[in-house]
Structures are given as structure tokens and as C-alpha cells.
Amino acid sequence: MVIHTSVRTGASLPDKPYGQLACEQVDVYYGSFRAVTDVSLAFGINEITALIGPSGCGKSTLLRSLNRMNDLIDGARVEGRVTFMGEDIYGKRVDAIEVRRRIGMVFQKPNPFPKSIFDNIAYGPRVNGIRVDSMSDLVEEALTKAALWDEVKDKLKQSALGLSGGQQQRLCIARTIAVKPDVILMDEPCSALDPIATARIEDLMHDLRREYTIVIVTHNMQQAARVADRTAFFTAQVDEGNGDRTGVLVEYGKTAQIFENPTDRRTEDYISGRFG
């Protein structure tokens, strides 16, 4: 019970109107295994929220349940409610494809399509039937927002696979932006990148925050401290019933508070490097 007090008392709720994207008592299962247990939290609009915690704490699993990417995994199931604009995204009449258009995702490893740079960006608008006067303008806009335009403007017809890892990841961000989502989920977007490329992505996230709500899973606590407005700390907890380990939300609050003045002992231990 202790684990939710910080959320339920409202002590750390976002200042801005929130509730655009929120979890209410969410459990995520893989078959009979419960990977995430009873998570409730709301993500602030135009804020960056970092999900941190040790391996196996369910943070990536939770992230994937926020835009129904878990649907692609056999046996994955979500209980509780994940709401977007007040609507349960797992509701009967909700189309997972529409959910994913509104809530985009950037993956751990850059995964550009084996197509040209231009076609990578144009793919999302095309499959969604988004009508634009000029696809070139849209591509330029997306690449500019992702801080990649200057580097690729002369080679839009070349394969995206010729780009460096950091460029590929920014391309994937540009690709996501091109379908004009409201929320961007990022699953350890820098873990395959070198420090310089990582810094560029972090700068980019700062800029993107003005227009998008961002949720980022990261293993890198410094990164969370650098980029996130709010941080949620998760840990793996042994279920007393069957002995399985399951991910729980320990503490959620402003990043400065989480890192400088955590209220939960486990958060403090993790932040200070005593475990994890």
C-alpha cells in the first residue's frame, strides 16, 4: 500500500492539466505471469516523464502497454485502465492502430526501414492516409524538428541504412513526428548510441517537449535527471502469493524531488547506487 501514497495523496501530481495519458491500477500479464502490478500514474502534458528502475522492473512492459504495442506479443494482456483523453485505449470500440498513430514510439535500437530517408518519413503519413499538399514539406518539417534536416537534406533519396546510429535514431524520431502524434514513447532511445549522439537526442527531447508529451524509459539515471520533468521509479517486488517477481511503481514525483529527496527508502537506495 505504501507504494502508492505519493501518487494518491496528490503530492506530486503535475501542475499542468494532466490526464491526457494515464494509467489506473494497471496490471500487465504475459500469459499467467504478471510482469507489472497495480500501477497508477498520470503523465503531464508537454512534460518529459522518465520511467527508471532496475532490470526486470516492468518499465518497458508498462511503456509498451501505453500504445498497445503489447498487442503484438502473444499472450500479453492488460488489466486496469490506460486512458488517453479520458478514453480507455483498451476499450472494445477502440482501434489499436488509431491509438498508435496518436501515441508514437521510438525503440531501443534504431529501426529505420530499408527504404530511402524520404520514404522512411513519408511512410507514416502515407499508411495513415494523411492528405498533405506537399509531402516534401512534411518530410522537411519532420526532419527539421528532429534536428536532422541539415545533415540529410542533400541525400533524401539515399538509403536510411547508410546513416550513423545516432542519425538513424533521430530519423526514427522524425518518422514518429511525421504522423503528428500527441505523445511520443521512447524505450531506452539512447542505449545503443555513443555519448555525443546521446547528447543530441537529449537536446532534441528538450525541444520536442514544447509540442509533445514524452515518456521515456531509461537505464541511465543521469539521463533521467538531465531530461525529465517528472520521474517514476519502479522496482521488482516478490509476490508473497506465488514467489514471482513483478514490477511495481515505488515513487513518482518531480525529478528533483525523486533524486534529491526521495520519500521511499528503496528509491533512495537505487538512486544512491546501493542496488540495481
Binding site: 504495442m69 498508435r100 518518422r175
Partner: peptide, 19 residues
């Protein structure tokens, strides 16, 4: 990763497969 990337952009399975 390519299937997931395509799905995350709002593509359905047929679009992902064909394109």
C-alpha cells in the same frame, strides 16, 4: 523491429507486410 516500427506509426498488418 521493422514490424514493430511500422505498427508504432499506425500501419495495419497488410500495410506493414506489403510496404
Amino acid at each position: 523491429a521493422l514490424r514493430q516500427g511500422s505498427a508504432a506509426l499506425g500501419a495495419n498488418r497488410m500495410q506493414t507486410t506489403v510496404r
